[in-house]
């Protein structure tokens, strides 16, 4: 028989994780971002399973510490955070709420499915401006302030903006 207490404790943890923000894109929580893969009870306490967005993402260590701190403050001192690499993270795991928050923050959210990254000299993706919604935008740099972003500029309102790349 499923243990009701266990179930509610796990869902309470999920709710607490909604308060842990990504240090580099602070408008998103770790749940919005899709990096929390699993929460379960283990013998020694709680285990939270996370996956990195990019192998070298420097935010992962901070995310791990912030998860432990948030849960400790809420009365869960024995939390283990385990990192898994498979299945590999994809922007498809970002929540709809997360995408809306990104746009409101001025970062264009990932659009559509990840494209074929092996195609040479492909046209850059058409990305609407997060400020004025114009599609008349241009890619300035395939690389931005963090590994997960590219740099764009809007030709209509001239606002430069980040685009959260599909992966």
């Amino acid at each position: 028989m499923p243990d009701v207490k266990t179930k509610s404790r796990v869902s309470e943890i999920w709710e607490l994780l909604e308060t842990v923000h990504d240090p580099e894109v602070p408008v998103l929580t770790v749940v919005d971002l899709g990096v929390v893969r699993e929460v379960r009870e283990i013998e020694s306490g709680i285990e939270v399973v996370i996956t990195p967005t990019y192998s070298g993402c420097p935010a992962m260590n901070v995310i791990e510490i912030n998860i432990k701190m948030a849960l400790a403050t809420a009365g869960y001192p024995n939390v283990a955070v385990r990192t898994v690499l498979s299945p590999a993270w994809t922007t498809d795991w970002m929540s709809e709420a997360g995408k809306q928050k990104l746009k409101a923050y001025g970062i264009a959210p990932p659009r559509g499915a990840a494209v074929d990254k092996s195609l040479l000299f492909a046209e850059p993706k058409r990305v609407p401006c997060p400020r004025c919604d114009s599609f008349d935008t241009k890619m300035v740099s395939e690389f931005g302030s963090t590994a997960c972003k590219a740099h764009y500029q809007c030709n209509s309102c001239l606002e430069p903006f980040d685009y959260f790349k599909c992966l």
Binding site: V84, S86, A88
Partner: peptide
Amino acid sequence: DPTLAAIAEKSIKEVTYHLRYSSEWMI
């Protein structure tokens, strides 16, 4: 080896991008 397979699955997404980029610059 499942750990090596998982590292490869993660890494190839990044390396696909690298290979495209360096191929384009060669040309």
